[in-house]
Structures are given as C-alpha cells and as structure tokens.
Amino acid sequence: MEEEKKIFIDKGLSLRSEEVNEVMGNVPHRVFRIGTFIFICIVALLVAIGYTLQVPNYIEVPYIVSGNTSAIGIVSKNAGIVMFRYNQPHNINEGDTIATVMNGNDSVYSISPIRGIVENNFLYTTGDNIVRGDTLARVISCELPNYRLILKISRNIKSEILCGMKIKIITKETMTENAVGYIKKISVIPDEANCYNAVVEMPINIIQNLPRFGKARVLYKQENVFTKIFAHRNKSAFE
C-alpha cells in the first residue's frame, strides 16, 4: 500500500512540466522586490529616528548655596561707656543709631546697616564700660535672605559650560524634577580654589531648601542616538 502511494506521488510530480517545477521552487520576483523595498524602508526609518532623536548629556558639577545672614552683629569699634538708644527690642531702619560709645570727649555711634529689629546684648546696659570688639547688639533683617546658587566649575570643563545652560540639582532631599534652573553668568577670573563661579537662576523657594553644598547636573549638549552609541563604544575600547 505504501509502495503504491509513493508511486502515485512520484507520478504526480513527474506529470508537472519543467517550467512549473521551476516556478514552484523559486520566489516570484515581484514578492522579492516588495519585501526588499519594505526592509529598506524600515532601515531608513530607523536611521532617520536615530539621527533625529536627541539624547541629553550631563556633567556633574559641585555647587554651594550662599546668602546674606538674617541677623547681623553690631560690634563696638572702640572702648568706653555704652549708651543704648533703647533698652527693649524695637524696629529700626537702615542708618538709625543703635548705641553710642563715649570715651572722654570722643563719641562713636553704632549705626544699623539694615532695616529690621534690634536686640541689645543683655550682658550690657546703659552706662557699662565695654572694650573694643564687644558685641553691643544684633539686628534681625526684615528682608528675606538673598540666596544664590553657585556652581564651582574647574578649568578642564570651563569651555563646556555656557550661559543659558539648563541644570538639575541632585540631592536626596530635593525632587530633581522641580530643582531646575539656568546658568545666568560665569566669572571671567577663577577664584582662590582655581574654579570659575557660575551663578544659577532658580526660584528662591527651591534654593533656600537645598543643602548648603552638593552636586548639580549641567545639560551641556545633546547628541543623536548614533553619536552617543559610537562615542560610548570608542570610550569602552580605549578603556
């Protein structure tokens, strides 16, 4: 039975012409051309996306938060007898006299440098003798501290940092999505630590909640996907 079936199949194949067998054994040219065209389109689309899609590159830079103090100590510039203008905490304007120190015929006035609330040093009262350098009072400013975020840029990356660049702050206490700012200006001359200072423009409510020092991510350039991949491979090869 199996031999008869095999003979039948062989006869069926032998009945086909040589042209039919050739067509059945080869892929039609039209199908091949369409498949090749679709493959080329897919590759071209991926290449276009790779060159169009930009990947951000960041540099980590140390930062510090600086700001004027909310309280300023008033220090005596000479020795003598102190005469306070008021004995209780009170409001004071910039330029008002806080105390007068008299030494013989000489009188030296202690002037408030800011507007705020003055508190006398409770160790002294009017008529006490003081020496030069004693703290007479402190003035608590009515103004909010002028916080500034400053990046410390080393010489080797100075050329990569420009005004207008976007930065993000990296800290455990801060949400990086919110802590975003831009470089406002960069010093021309390096400081005593041989670093250039870059002032960052950022909302004051974010700066005042940042740690006093940390690291910031500076978006210094954008590259397409292929450039990023090839640069990473070259770097890995050299390492």
Rank of each mutant, 00 (worst) to 15 (best):
M1T: 12
K6I: 10
R16E: 00
E19K: 04
V20G: 01
N21W: 07
M24K: 00
V27I: 05
V27A: 05
P28F: 01
P28C: 00
I34N: 08
I38A: 09
F39R: 07
F39Q: 10
I42M: 03
I42R: 02
V43Y: 01
A44G: 05
L45W: 01
A48C: 09
G50D: 12
T52S: 15
V55Q: 00
P56K: 05
P56I: 02
N57E: 04
I59T: 09
E60Y: 12
V61K: 03
S66G: 04
V75F: 05
N78A: 14
N78Y: 12
G80F: 07
R85L: 15
N87G: 15
N87E: 15
N91H: 13
N91W: 08
I92T: 03
A99D: 11
N103K: 14
V108M: 11
I111Y: 08
S112N: 09
S112L: 09
N120Y: 06
T125P: 00
G127E: 07
D128F: 08
N129Q: 12
A137F: 10
P145F: 06
P145R: 01
L149P: 03
I150R: 02
I150D: 00
I153T: 07
S154M: 08
N156K: 09
K158S: 09
K158N: 05
K166R: 05
E173W: 01
E173R: 12
E173T: 11
T174L: 08
N178V: 06
A179Y: 01
V180L: 04
G181V: 05
S187K: 12
E192C: 00
Y196F: 15
A198E: 06
A198G: 15
M202L: 01
P203E: 10
I206C: 02
N209T: 09
L210D: 02
R212S: 09
A216D: 05
A216T: 03
K228P: 01
F230D: 04
F230R: 06
R233Q: 14
R233F: 13
K235A: 15
S236Q: 01
F238R: 13
